[in-house]
Amino acid sequence: MASGGQTVLQFPQASTNLTARIHPLVIFNICDCFVRRPDQAERVIGTLLGSVLPDGTVDIRNSYAVPHNESSDQVALDIDYHHNMLSSQQKVNPKEVIVGWFSTGFGVTGGSALIHDFYSREVPNPVHLTIDTGFTNLGASIKAFVSVNLSLGDQQLAAQFQEIPLDLRMVEAELVGFDILKTAMVDKLPGDVEGMEATMERLLALIDDVYKYVDDVVEGRVAPDNNIGRFISDTISSMPKLSSEAFNTLVNDSLQDQLLLLYLSSITRTQLSLAEKLNTAAQIL
């Protein structure tokens, strides 16, 4: 972006420590809107909702597309639609306010400044999020920008888009499971046992990795790294030191508790089905 060659050109530093945090739902929604865009449209734009956290992070939690018309040098946004949708969204969650706007495509384009101006009137210092749905650089590039004033001495020259760090909050996606979200079609939701199995496999793989690493270090195949060593020793020391007996009683007590519960619930179920059978027997008689 603008590389000021002159010494008097000033970049304000105040807003550069701003970061944005984006939830996976926003990406999903924007992609969906892009897939459903009108025939002639090349990109979709829309509003980002969320909140500004006390530490200045912009938390982007929700979004909706706004219809627009674009020609070579002008952009017409459906402002009525924008306001209607906003008031509807606010009815559900009043805590989510406008924090910026999004557009698909790679980086900032010409019309972006105009739309950014419009959003600046809705909310001070909006965030501009771009999602590259065309995979221009063979990668999923998601970027966030804020507008920064560029001034020459005291004179206001222009505003430029400055990229700010973006934090992808994938925790929610992890809760659902990436296996479900990244494949085109999943036939069955994973149940309790399958999930547990996958987790255990991963844990086992991790333990194997650590074993291998320790063995390699001991035998001198890999240069030791103090940091990793400290992590491993921290992990091991975080396990409470219990005598074997105490541990066994602990585990056995828990097991017995669970067994009791299992027994209780099974007996209840049996009762229910027995009652069911009695009911059917009564019909036959």
Binding site: F28, C31, V35, A140, I180, K182, A184, D187, K188, L189
Partner: peptide, 14 residues
């Protein structure tokens, strides 16, 4: 039974 589907675009992103 529930099936989950995703558009190709989303699966690429994810």
């Amino acid at each position: 039974p529930i099936k989950v589907s995703n558009s190709a675009l989303i699966s690429a992103f994810m």
